[in-house]
């Protein structure tokens, strides 16, 4: 199982890649909203999600997930962290 911090770092690394390294990783904060603050779109979000699934070795189960509550880096990391244990 990946630790929460490992997942957070993986997500930040992916966001930087999605933005073609125009934003340094150390400028991405845990409470930044992926779309509203960091400027990624739904396609980029899907890409970050996909990479996260691969990182934890599991596909995200949608049941019970309220996507409107998965806005920030931390919230996405928590979703992936919890899904590991399911």
């Amino acid at each position: 199982m990946k630790s929460f911090d490992e997942i957070v770092n993986h997500i930040k690394k992916n966001i930087a890649q999605v933005l073609l390294e125009s934003l340094p990783i150390d400028k991405i904060n845990n409470d930044d909203k992926l779309i509203a603050d960091l400027g990624i779109d739904s396609l980029d979000y899907a890409m970050v999600m996909l990479s996260g699934e691969e990182f934890i070795g599991k596909k995200v189960k949608e049941e019970g997930v309220i996507w409107q509550e998965i806005q920030t880096v931390q919230q996405l990391a928590m979703l992936l962290y919890k899904q590991q244990g399911d």
Binding site: L20, S42, M49, L50
Partner: peptide, 28 residues
């Protein structure tokens, strides 16, 4: 590739000495 947010997204496998990021920039 099935995706919970968009239904499907595109996946790609490729053969060749090319960095994925360079390929992505090219495709964009």
């Amino acid at each position: 590739i099935d995706n919970p947010l968009l239904g499907q997204v595109v996946g790609l496998d490729y053969v060749g000495p090319v960095e994925p990021l360079a390929l992505r920039k090219h495709l964009l």
